[in-house]
Lab assay of single mutants.
Amino acid sequence: SSRTRFTDYQLRVLQDFFDANAYPKDDEFEQLSNLLNLPTRVIVVWFQNARQKARK
């Protein structure tokens, strides 16, 4: 499967949200999905990866 290429804007929004809340609710994932024009699944995985990185 091909990797999603995030724009700088998408990454900034995701990172800002993550800094405020590492565990979004379903409706928040949906809002981010609509805002960033990305599939919810891609955003869910991004947050999983970000939490892994933050733990190191």
Rank of each mutant, 00 (worst) to 15 (best):
K56C: 15
N21Y: 02
E30L: 04
D26V: 11
W46L: 00
S2A: 05
R3C: 15
R3K: 15
N21V: 04
D26I: 13
P39C: 02
D26L: 05
R12P: 01
S33V: 04
R41K: 14
R55V: 11
V42Y: 09
V45R: 12
P39A: 05
D27L: 08
R5F: 15
K25R: 13
Y9W: 07
K56V: 08
F6Q: 02
R51W: 05
S33F: 00
Q52K: 10
A22V: 09
R41H: 14
D16T: 09
A50Q: 07
Q31G: 11
R55Q: 13
A22E: 14
W46H: 03
R12Q: 13
I43D: 01
N37H: 12
A20S: 10
L32Q: 01
E30S: 09
V44W: 10
V44Y: 03
T40F: 10
L32R: 01
S2Q: 10
A20E: 09
K53T: 12
N34E: 14
R3I: 14
Q31A: 07
L36K: 00
E28N: 04
D8I: 02
R12T: 09
D26H: 02
V13Q: 14
Q31C: 11
D8M: 07
Y23M: 13
F18Q: 06
V45C: 14
Q31V: 12
F6M: 14
K56H: 11
Q48R: 10
Q15H: 11
A20D: 10
F18I: 06
L32M: 12
Q52C: 12
V45I: 11
V44A: 09
S2M: 15
V45P: 07
R5E: 15
T7V: 03
T40A: 09
P39F: 02
A50T: 10
E28K: 04
R55F: 10
F47P: 00
V42P: 13
L14N: 00
Q15K: 06
Q48A: 08
L36R: 02
A54G: 14
F18D: 01
V44L: 12
R5V: 15
S2R: 05
F17N: 09
L35D: 14
Y23W: 13
R55W: 05
F17C: 07
Y9T: 09
S1G: 15
N37L: 09
L36T: 13
V44H: 03
S2H: 11
Q10A: 02
S1A: 11
L38K: 03
K53S: 13
V44T: 11
W46N: 00
E28D: 15
F47Y: 09
K53I: 12
Q10S: 04
F18V: 04
T4W: 02
D26R: 08
V13P: 01
L38E: 06
F18L: 07
D19L: 00
T40P: 11
F17T: 10
D19M: 14
R12L: 07
Q10M: 07
P39Q: 11
N34Q: 07
S33P: 03
L35P: 00
A22I: 10
V44P: 04
P24W: 05
N37Q: 09
R51F: 03
L35K: 15
Y9Q: 15
R55L: 12
Q31K: 13
F47C: 02
T4A: 01
L35Q: 05
A54I: 13
S2E: 15
P24I: 06
D19I: 02
V42E: 15
D19N: 11
V45N: 14
V45Q: 13
R5H: 15
T40C: 12
Y23N: 13
Q10Y: 01
Q52D: 15
Y9H: 09
R41F: 12
L36A: 06
S1L: 07
D19V: 09
Q52I: 07
N37K: 12
K25I: 07
L38I: 13
K25V: 09
I43E: 00
D27Y: 08
R41G: 13
A50M: 13
K53Y: 09
V13R: 05
L35A: 10
Y9P: 07
L36F: 02
V42A: 11
V45F: 08
Q15F: 05
L35G: 11
N37A: 10
W46A: 01
Q48H: 04
F6L: 05
R5D: 15
F47N: 00
F18Y: 13
R3L: 15
S2N: 12
R41T: 14
F6R: 02
Q48V: 10
V45W: 09
D27T: 10
Q52N: 08
Q48S: 12
D16S: 12
P39R: 06
F18R: 03
P24L: 03
V13C: 06
R5K: 15
E28G: 04
T7E: 12
N34L: 08
L32D: 02
A54R: 03
D16Q: 11
I43W: 01
T4M: 15
L36I: 04
T4R: 04
L14M: 12
R41D: 15
L38R: 03
D27I: 08
V42K: 11
S2W: 06
F17Q: 04
F6K: 04
Y23C: 06
P24A: 03
R3H: 15
L38Y: 03
A22K: 08
K25N: 10
P24D: 03
D27F: 06
F6D: 04
I43A: 03
Y23H: 07
F47A: 02
I43G: 02
Q10F: 03
D8C: 12
T40L: 10
Q31L: 06
L38C: 04
Q10C: 01
T7K: 06
D16V: 05
L36W: 01
V13S: 11
D19P: 02
A54Y: 04
Y23S: 11
S33M: 02
F17I: 02
R12S: 08
N34M: 12
R12V: 04
L38N: 01
N49F: 03
Q10I: 01
N49D: 13
D27C: 06
L32A: 03
Y9D: 12
D16F: 03
A22H: 09
D16K: 07
K53Q: 09
F47D: 02
V13G: 05
W46R: 01
R3G: 15
S33T: 05
D8V: 04
T40E: 05
D19G: 04
D19A: 12
Y23G: 05
N37T: 07
Q15A: 08
L36E: 00
Q15N: 10
N37C: 12
R3S: 15
A20K: 14
V42W: 08
L11P: 00
D16Y: 01
N34F: 02
Y9S: 13
P24F: 03
V42F: 06
P39K: 07
A22L: 09
L11Y: 04
N37V: 09
L11H: 07
A54M: 02
F29E: 03
R51P: 00
D27S: 10
P24M: 01
R55K: 12
A22P: 14
F6Y: 11
R51T: 05
R5P: 13
Y23Q: 12
K56Y: 08
A20F: 03
W46M: 01
Q15Y: 03
F6P: 01
L38A: 05
W46V: 01
N34W: 03
L38M: 11
R55S: 14
V42D: 13
K53M: 12
L32V: 08
D26E: 07
E28V: 08
N49R: 07
N21F: 03
L11R: 09
L35Y: 09
Q15D: 08
Q48E: 14
L14F: 01
F29Y: 11
F29P: 00
S1V: 08
F6H: 02
V44Q: 12
N49W: 06
L38T: 08
Q10W: 00
I43S: 01
A50G: 05
E28S: 06
K56A: 13
T7Y: 04
R55D: 10
L32T: 04
D27N: 10
N49V: 05
V45L: 09
R41S: 13
